[in-house]
């Protein structure tokens, strides 16, 4: 298997934690809520899933438990940021620190333990295509994540639900005047984002690298928040961005195994450097951000 085939085969799996977390954050931001706690939500989901799977609960239960735990933590965010109208940046940072702390606390006695991942399912015929065939051999969570991407895209493109969420984020006063429950919609969007962040963490801990190590999320939650900007709040572009980051993290792995003479620290910081560069490129196009951005992002709503 050459480097290109290696990257193609693993790209979607590596992209999945980014994709799930970023889609969840996108929904919250579309409703006007900036939740910076994604890193902590992912870390909590990761440790809960790992503990459940390690004790024989199975992957399904692991994902459900991770989703519930991260949703619960995201509701703490919602109560304080939306209920008490506290500064969303500060609440998000606090949730992030709390989630990472709880993750380290719960995972302490599981350090370096491993669990079994999930089997890959291959699509007939497509998986036999040379070079890109590896794209069609993925585990069930990857397939479900792709379906979720399409579903979220369709909800925002075609349904009234998507329109209501966007209205609440764009102009909460007008949405309220039309009779839409602004705070309730925002609560729901934050909880949805929390659940997806939990799934993202669970995937990272019990499928992608099924080994527990404190701090294993390693900035992926933050990159997911950046991906929402890269994707200009559109599910389709967030998917492309997540694939880019999946490929980048695999490329640094491939470079390390082929013995390319680059320091491993440089390769480890590659995803962060790419984030900084891409963020600069996309953000400097002010029109693009204005066109797609969410007008009331981060602003508390008062009737």
């Amino acid at each position: 298997m050459n480097a290109l085939e290696f990257i193609v085969a693993g790209m979607l799996a590596a992209a999945t934690p980014f994709l799930l977390a970023a889609l969840g954050e996108m929904v919250a931001e579309r409703a006007g809520v900036l939740n910076l706690g994604v890193e902590g939500l992912m870390a909590l989901g990761a440790v809960i899933a790992f503990i459940v799977v390690y004790h024989g609960g199975g992957h399904l239960l692991g994902f459900v438990a991770a989703g519930l735990a991260s949703t619960a933590l995201s509701l703490v965010f919602a109560v304080i940021a939306l209920g008490f109208r506290a500064n969303q940046v500060a609440v998000g940072l606090a949730i992030g620190i709390l989630g990472q702390g709880l993750s380290a606390l719960f995972g302490k006695s599981y350090e370096s333990l491993t669990v079994k991942g999930l089997p890959k399912l291959s699509l007939p015929w497509l998986s036999d295509i040379p070079v890109i065939g590896g794209l069609f051999v993925e585990d069930v969570v990857v397939w479900l994540s792709l379906a979720a991407t399409v579903a979220i895209w369709a909800i925002f493109a075609y349904t009234k639900t998507g329109l209501v969420v966007r209205a609440v984020g764009e102009n909460p006063k007008a949405a309220h005047a039309l009779g839409y429950p602004v705070i309730a919609v925002r609560f729901a969007a934050v909880a949805f984002g929390g659940a997806l962040a939990g799934f993202a963490g669970a995937y990272a801990a019990v499928v992608y690298t099924p080994l527990w190590a404190d701090g294993m999320i390693a900035g992926r939650g933050w990159i997911a928040i950046a991906l929402v900007v890269f994707g200009t709040w559109l599910a389709s572009r967030i998917f492309l961005g997540a694939c880019l980051f999946g490929a980048v993290s695999l490329a640094s792995l491939a470079a390390q195994t082929t013995g390319l003479d680059v320091s491993s620290q440089l390769l480890s910081s590659l995803p962060y450097l790419v984030t900084i560069v891409v963020l600069g490129i996309i953000s400097s196009n002010r029109r693009l951000l204005k066109l797609n951005g969410v007008a009331s992002l981060g602003e508390p709503f008062e009737q």
């Binding site: 390693a218 933050w222 620290q265 440089l266 963020l279 600069g280 400097s284």
Partner: peptide
Amino acid sequence: WRVRLNANEILVSLMLALVAAQVLNY
């Protein structure tokens, strides 16, 4: 990045903190 490129300072400063940890390791 924030002033000239309009990039969000929260994300850029955090990413640079992760890079700094790698510079230290190196």
